[in-house]
Amino acid sequence: MFEARLAQGALLKKVVEAIKDLIEDANFDCNSSGFSLQAMDSSHVSLVALSLRADGFEHYRCDRNVSMGMKLASLSKILKCANGDDAITMKSEDNGDTITFMFESPEQERLSEFDLKLMDIDSEHLGIPDNEYDATVKLPAAEFQRIVKDLSTIGDTVEISVTKDAVKFGTTGDIGNANIMCRQNKAADKPDESTEIDINEAVSLTFALRYLNSFAKATPLSTHAVLKLSKELPILVEYHIPEVGRLAFYLAPKIED
């Protein structure tokens, strides 16, 4: 059987809220090392990769590898019934056709159980190598969210250019154009506001803002978003979930013909 208890149930709520508009349904894969998901959006332009480590759970048991297909909209409906401070336990019998979500209030005076029907989902799994990237930018998650939101009011795509000490986001639209530059800033007294750039080679790539805006829904999960870019490769946008794992998004670039 599979059974996993997350004391900070809010994490699971935030993860599902961050991905439910991007992917319709997905297989959640459970094995002894943890709980993970990989899924592409319906147009196969972006990919979501979630991994929650077994040791990030208060209790974790997975007797054999299972893949549980769920519709994200249904999962979201159920998780909205959990309070933000509830602990959430997921349970499923081997070969079961449902997964049970149990919500416990902090004083355990309220216990609720919701069963979600599992589905068979055909999904394509991509092998993504653990590349070294040309440039890595770590910036406050709220700042990244604001940049992609603001630029979306002007254009549909963003050119992200990283140099040694700054990252520039630029867009062009019918009404004009916009550029936002963030300089490296390693303020030791305010680590949550730091912007750090690690670069092997200057890089500049163009992406659809619609998807980056969707990725930014993961902002509540982490203080920082980490952008990893390499020439002619998909961008990786990572949100580290402290002590539990990470939620990562990949987006294929726009290529000039």
């Binding site: 592409m40 147009s43 196969h44 332009v45 972006s46 990919l47 394509e124 799994h125 991509l126 092998g127 993504i128 190598p129 254009g155 549909d156 795509t157 062009t172 163009t206 659809a208 490769l233 998909p234 990949y250 294929a252 670039p253 726009k254 290529i255 000039e256 013909d257």
Partner: peptide, 14 residues
């Protein structure tokens, strides 16, 4: 803004 390519142009299915 260029041509949008898919993820499968970069990574192979496993």
């Amino acid at each position: 803004g260029g041509r949008q390519v898919g993820m499968t142009a970069f990574y192979a299915a496993t």
